[in-house]
Write a protein that binds this DNA or RNA. Structure first.
Lengths: 326, 326
DNA sequence: CTGAAAGCGCTTACAG
DNA sequence: CTGAAAGCGCTTACAG
């Protein structure tokens, strides 16, 4: 193991000076700096992160809590976060937390093994969130938020997006709209539902049906199958997300309904699969890179200055028209 | 910050004894241990990971290199790895490495910020792999392997699986088989191609076509569209993985071909979407939990005993029959 | 079985 | 601008 002491010996300076070069301190002449840098290269030196972390109390690592990687939106968001963190020279520890309880995450927060936590999904009852609050670990919520909690939050304007989706179906001639909500416990689901309802109210219409379920293919498929069973089935389905919409499309296919002639379907997220001909799903695009960038910036700011007022960032979504609605 | 010194004061023992309790040393009487544990609870103590890491040279963290989260098999494998690592109380740092160059990964390996690296995908030219070898960081290859490299490797029996898939199509009456290979640079692709060829040779048949491309939906779709353009199109497509097969299925649909009547299609991986009615894709199942468990065990063994001979583990795949072949 | 002490590899006041 | 020194919070020989 090559240490800063070895570098110091080779460069003919003190270990403290090597350390100053490392931290880009202004207290070093260019000439010394050059000598030290040359010595570093010569001996193949790399600073030891653990030692630095112990001294500074900063690990240079953020934790990212995700769940439900089966929904392709999350891998997409994870990739975006990875890029954003890389660009800022921060490491990423990932915790996949089903049901909001991941022991590794709780330990890491308690042991201060991370400088901050990015939650891509939370419920009020998330144990990781409680741990972060209790241990006073900086954190930020991205994608799913908690309106009642005073903390940094970054999200898409879910109500606006969902209203856009709803108006689009109305413009395409739908009159009997049903809403297939996602996981009722998430803010994304309630906000999107609200957008649907307000757009419908604007048009002086009432929903044919609003059902709760989960953000899954099976949930979308089963609910759509039931909807198609009634006397006067809906002619437009607004779905909580793309995965639910894929289930609804398959349900329509199973019932022999033509999409978009008999029934129009729209999703939310614009995952890669939405553009596949098998689905050709109209949807609302969320910009994962934008969400990720804002989230990382917010958390870095919070780590640097813990006591500034919490900040909310809202990203505007966009309508993507495809074959499932026209 | 509560330290082991605080615990020692409260428990009326030395700091060394607290440390011994932490590391579950046998050199402590039960009575002392109880007093110390009580003191820990009382003062709300959690050991500092960075300090321990500096002292022991172990960080308790493995790095995981993934790429292409757009292929749902990788999120699935990542979840399995997360579970396996959690169960063994090891943290997971994830690097998403397109084109095999991720600066954060290179830094972490050089700085010994991780105890070992799990590669879920590699090429010979992977810079992360080179860094791990050069820095003598323990590592293991899972899923994709490098036959010529002497190191721990865990993979599915890709040739066996692909031969199974091929024989299944032959049993279903196909006589004109085409192979849609994945990324030619990966061992999974070459092994699967070999399985296809040997199963075909067994039956004294020749392939109608073998094309290289990438492991993507678009690549599968485009190649299938071309195949369907020729005079005597194939009646069975063996695909490098499920994503390629989804593209092929959509191509068949676009050409107005009935699956499985006109053409049968089989994939590889058994990602969740394969069972959706939209695809109902026959495929070869890989057990991600098994692969992940073996990989983590192999790496832990390697970390504990660096100089034992490298070990290869091969997991047997299984045929999953669905609508796309019968 | 327990304690006093050294030391892991850094950063950062404190002198000069 | 540079160096000597203290110390971050642990682990682990070394005595006893």
């Amino acid at each position: 193991m090559v240490t800063s002491r070895d570098v110091a010996r080779v460069a003919g300076v003190s270990q403290a000076t090597v350390s100053r070069v490392l931290s880009a301190s202004a207290l070093v002449t260019d000439e010394t700096r050059l000598r030290v840098v040359a010595a570093m290269e010569k001996v193949g030196y790399t600073p030891n992160r653990s030692a630095r972390a112990m001294r500074t109390g900063r690990t240079g690592t953020f934790g990212v809590v995700v769940s439900d990687l089966a929904n392709p939106f999350y891998p997409q968001l994870l990739e975006a976060l990875s890029r954003a963190l890389d660009a800022r020279d921060v490491r990423m520890t990932v915790w996949i937390s089903d049901e909001g309880r991941n022991q590794a995450a709780l330990d890491a927060i308690a042991e201060r093994a991370i400088d901050g936590v990015i939650f891509t999904t939370v419920g009020e009852e998330s144990t990781e969130l409680r741990a972060a609050i209790e241990r006073e670990s900086p954190f930020v919520l991205v994608n799913r938020t908690l309106p009642m909690l005073s903390c940094d939050q970054v999200s898409s304007a879910n109500d606006v997006g969902s209203a856009m989706a709803t108006r689009h179906l109305l413009e395409q001639g739908c009159t009997r709209l049903a809403y297939l909500e996602g996981a009722a416990s998430s803010t994304t689901a309630t906000e999107r539902l609200r957008g649907f309802q307000s757009a419908l109210a604007e048009a002086d219409l009432k929903p044919v049906s609003v059902t709760g379920g989960s953000y899954s293919y099976e949930s979308g498929r089963e609910r759509a199958l039931e909807l198609f069973n009634v006397e006067n089935p809906p002619d437009g389905l607004v779905c909580g997300n793309d995965i639910v919409a894929f289930g609804a499309l398959d349900a329509a296919r199973e019932r022999g309904l033509d999409v978009p002639r008999d029934v129009k379907v729209i999703g939310y997220d614009d995952v890669a699969m939405a553009s596949w001909p098998a689905f050709s799903l109209s949807t609302i695009r969320q910009d994962a890179d934008l969400l990720a960038g804002f989230a990382v910036d917010a958390l870095m700011r919070r780590v640097a200055t813990p006591h500034v007022a919490p900040h909310r960032t809202i990203v505007q979504p966009a309508l993507v028209r495809r074959g499932s609605t026209s």
